[in-house]
């Protein structure tokens, strides 16, 4: 597991993993999209719009997951002086931002036919919007500091401070009565989702994870190279 904290080990592992991941994600996307468009049933209430779920839910999960991993890496980097954490934070923040944006846009498209409006100010939507803005602030911070040492540490501190938003996003549907429905899939109870919808959802989630990891590998590699040559 050393490749998770060591840049040169990571580079070796990345060369090994990148191609299979990319191919796998393309295959999974093809299967997943096929499933979600043709082999999954319409919802009895929502009709065909339920298929937005197969993009919306995985991207939302990954947006949260990305931030959580960034938080862990920030702790590693600040407390245990592992510089790979800083590299990871710089590289991965835009990916998280994109996942959040996909989540917001697809949710908005889903909301128009179902709730009758593009946007409501309920707890889940607001907290996800804040998550998106936090991602943007991280990216802008990465762009606007001259000094690299200060920049990466300040960004790590900001990520830690901003991680208070994560539990709010996760539990907002349980804590407040929101228009957004509560989680249908959780570890503790049997999922309240039909297996025929569950299958494409899981396939799409894995496809999203694969493509996310593949892009992350690319970005981390460029970040390592640019650091080595003192470009940033």
């Amino acid at each position: 597991m050393k490749f998770l904290v060591n840049p040169s080990k990571f580079n070796e592992m990345a060369d090994y993993l990148f191609r299979p991941l990319l191919i796998l994600s393309i295959i999974l996307f093809a299967i997943g999209l096929l499933f979600s468009f043709y082999f999954s049933p319409d919802d009895y209430q929502q009709g065909s719009t339920v298929r937005i779920m197969y993009v919306h839910v995985p991207s939302a999960w990954l947006a949260l997951l990305t931030y959580a991993i960034m938080t862990i890496y920030s702790i590693l980097a600040l407390a245990f002086r592992i510089p790979f954490g800083f590299i990871f934070n710089t590289a991965v923040a835009p990916i998280g931002a994109v996942f959040t944006l996909i989540c917001i846009v697809s949710g908005s498209l889903w909301g128009k036919p179902m709730w009758g409006t593009w946007w409501v100010w309920d707890a889940r939507l607001t907290s996800v919007a804040i998550l998106f803005i936090i991602y943007l602030i991280i990216i802008f911070m990465n762009l606007s500091f001259e000094n690299r040492i200060v920049r990466e540490k300040v960004v790590a501190i900001f990520i830690l401070v901003g991680s208070v938003n994560l539990p709010i996003v996760k539990f907002s549907v349980d804590w407040w009565n929101t228009l957004h429905q509560p989680a249908t899939i959780s570890k503790l109870s049997t999922p309240s989702i039909d297996p025929s919808m569950m299958t494409p959802l899981i396939i799409m989630t894995f496809a999203f994870i694969m493509i996310g990891v593949a892009i992350a590998i690319l970005r981390i590699k460029t970040e390592i190279i640019s650091r080595k040559s003192h470009l940033s």
């Binding site: 804040i130 803005i133 602030i137 802008f140 762009l143 606007s144 500091f145 001259e146 300040v154 900001f158």
Partner: peptide, 17 residues
């Protein structure tokens, strides 16, 4: 403090939190 280019970011951070 070290951010010479974009200080408005500071206000945005306060407003978000």
């Amino acid at each position: 403090l070290m951010n010479q280019r974009n200080f408005l970011l500071g206000s945005v951070i306060v407003m978000i939190f």
